[in-house]
C-alpha cells in the first residue's frame, strides 16, 4: 500500500468521524438547553472549546450566541472542524484514493458532501436542526457500515479504522475536559439535579447514556461516568476501547513496534487512573496527559508509514 494512500485513508476516517461527532454534539447541546433553567448560563461557547478553539471563532464572530456558534460549527469558513469542512476534506481525500475505496462508499461520501453543502442552513433553524444533523450522523454510520461490509479488511481498511478511533479518542477527551471544567460545581446541592442533567449530556454526546445505564445501573455520578468513558473496554467510544482498536489495527501492519509501544503507554496511563480522585485540576491535567499520549501515537504513525 502506498504511503500517500495510507495517509489519506487515515484522514478520511478522521474527517468522517469528526463530522459525525460534531453533529451529535450540537444535537445534544440543543436538547440540553431546553432542559436547563434560565439561571444556569451554559450557552454555546463550550462547543467551540470542544471542537475548535476560541481564537479561530472570535476572529469571525463577536459573540458566542446560538446562531454564531452554530454557523461556525456547521460551515465555519476558517474552521477545519466544521461539519461542512470535514465533509469537504473527507470528499477530497476520498477523491484522491477513489480507486481504493469501494465505489458505493465514494458515492455515499459524495452524496453526503452535496447534502451537507446544500442543506446546512437547515440546522440554524431549531425546527429543522434535528433533521439535518440526524441525516449527517446516519449517513456517516451508513458509510462506516458499507466499509465494514464491502471493503477487504486489509491494511487500507485498518488505516481507516485507526483514523476513526484516534479521532474518537480525541473527541472523548475534549468533551470530558471542557464539560468538567465548565459544568461542574461539585457540592452545590440545589443544582445537583442539573448537574446530573449535564453529566447525562456528556454521556449522550458520546451516545453512551443508554449503555452506561445498562452497565452501571446507578444514578449518574461523576466518578462512574468517568470510569465508564475512560475504562469500559467493551464500550466502543470509551478511551480504552478506542486505543485497543488502534492497537489491534496497528498489529496488522509492518514495523508496528514503535507505534504499539506508544499506544501501550497511553493504555497504562488510563489504567492507572482513579476516577474517584479525578476532580477539577487533577482531571484536567490527566486529560492533558492522555491527549499528549494520543498525539504521540499519531506522530509515530506518521514517522513509520506516511
Amino acid at each position: 500500500m502506498l504511503s500517500r494512500v495510507a495517509n489519506n485513508l487515515c484522514w478520511l476516517g478522521r474527517y468522517l468521524e469528526r463530522a459525525e461527532n460534531t453533529a451529535r454534539l450540537i444535537n445534544v447541546n440543543s436538547n440540553l438547553l431546553l432542559d436547563l433553567p434560565k439561571s444556569i448560563v451554559l450557552g454555546w461557547e463550550p462547543l467551540v472549546d470542544i471542537v475548535s478553539d476560541r481564537t479561530a471563532f472570535y476572529t469571525a464572530y463577536d459573540v458566542a450566541d446560538e446562531q454564531s456558534v452554530l454557523s461556525f460549527l456547521l460551515f465555519g469558513p476558517n474552521d477545519p472542524s466544521s461539519i461542512v469542512s470535514s465533509l469537504e476534506f473527507a470528499r477530497e481525500n476520498a477523491r484522491t484514493i477513489r480507486e481504493i475505496i469501494p465505489r458505493e462508499v465514494w458515492e455515499q461520501i459524495n452524496e453526503l458532501y452535496i447534502y451537507g453543502h446544500e442543506n446546512y442552513s437547515k440546522a440554524l433553524i431549531r425546527r429543522s436542526r434535528y433533521e439535518f444533523l440526524t441525516e449527517v450522523i446516519e449517513s456517516v454510520q451508513k458509510i462506516t457500515g458499507i466499509l465494514a461490509g464491502t471493503m477487504t479488511h486489509d491494511e487500507g481498511y485498518h488505516f481507516l479504522k485507526i483514523g476513526r478511533n484516534l479521532e474518537r479518542a480525541d473527541m472523548t477527551t475534549r468533551i470530558i475536559d471542557v464539560r468538567s471544567a465548565s459544568l461542574l460545581q461539585e457540592t452545590e446541592t440545589e443544582q445537583s439535579a442539573f448537574e446530573n442533567l449535564q453529566w447525562m449530556s456528556v454521556l449522550k454526546s458520546l451516545t453512551a447514556y443508554q449503555m452506561y445505564r445498562r452497565e452501571m445501573r446507578l444514578r449518574i455520578r461523576r466518578p462512574d461516568v468517568l470510569k465508564f468513558l475512560l475504562l469500559e473496554e467493551r464500550f466502543p467510544r470509551s478511551l480504552l476501547h478506542t486505543l485497543q482498536e488502534v492497537d489491534k489495527c496497528v498489529q496488522t501492519l509492518p514495523h508496528f513496534d514503535a507505534t504499539k509501544s506508544e499506544i501501550e503507554q497511553v493504555e497504562k496511563l488510563l489504567m492507572s487512573a482513579n476516577p474517584q480522585s479525578l476532580i477539577q485540576d487533577k482531571l484536567h491535567q490527566f486529560i492533558d496527559d492522555v491527549q499528549l499520549g494520543i498525539n504521540q501515537v499519531f506522530v509515530k504513525l506518521e514517522e513509520t508509514y506516511f
Partner: peptide
C-alpha cells in the same frame, strides 16, 4: 486504476534507484 485493481500514483510516489528500476513508496 480502481477498475483494474492497480495503484494510482503521482510522481512523488515513485522513485528510480541506482539499479535503474522504478519503485513506489509503500508502508512496507
Amino acid at each position: 486504476a480502481q477498475q483494474m485493481g492497480a495503484e494510482l500514483v503521482v510522481g512523488d510516489d515513485l522513485v528510480v534507484e541506482d539499479d535503474n528500476c522504478v519503485y513506489m513508496r509503500t508502508i512496507n
